[in-house]
Computed example of a mutant assay.
Amino acid sequence: MGFTVVTLGSQIADEGVALLREAGATLVATAAYPPKDEMIAMLTRHRPEAVMVRLVKRIDEDVMRASPSLKVIAKHAVGCDDVDTAAARRLGIPVMLATGCNAQSVAEHALAVMLALVKDLSRQDAHMRAGRFDKSLYHGRELRGMTLGLVGLGQIGRGFARMAAAIGMKIVGYDPFAPDSAFEAPVARVRELDTLLETADVVSLHCPLTDATRGLIGRREISLIKRGAYLINTARGEVIDEAALAEALASGAIAGAGIDSFSVEPPPATHPFLRLPNTIVTPHVAGVTDDAKREVSLQTARNVLAVLSGAPPDRRYLAN
Rank of each mutant, 00 (worst) to 15 (best):
V83R: 04
V63F: 12
V72Q: 05
R90M: 03
A98D: 08
V78I: 07
E108A: 11
A103V: 13
G100K: 04
A103F: 12
D82C: 05
L97Q: 10
R90Y: 03
V95C: 07
C80V: 05
A103K: 08
T99S: 14
V95K: 08
T85D: 00
M64S: 10
Q104V: 12
A77C: 09
V95W: 06
A107Y: 09
V56K: 13
A88Y: 07
D84E: 04
T85N: 00
A74L: 01
K71D: 00
I59N: 07
M64I: 10
I93R: 07
L70Y: 05
V72D: 06
V78F: 01
L97D: 09
T99D: 08
A77Q: 08
A87P: 01
R89A: 15
P68T: 10
I73F: 07
V83I: 14
V106A: 10
I73G: 09
S67C: 15
M64N: 10
G100T: 08
K57I: 12
V106H: 06
V106P: 05
H76E: 03
V95L: 05
K71H: 01
P94V: 13
G100L: 05
D60V: 13
S105A: 15
A74R: 01
R90G: 03
S67H: 13
A98M: 06
I73H: 08
L97I: 10
S105F: 07
A74H: 01
A66Q: 07
L97V: 11
G79H: 00
S105M: 10
G100C: 07
K75Q: 06
D60P: 14
S69G: 08
T85G: 00
G79M: 00
I93W: 06
T99G: 05
T85I: 00
I93S: 09
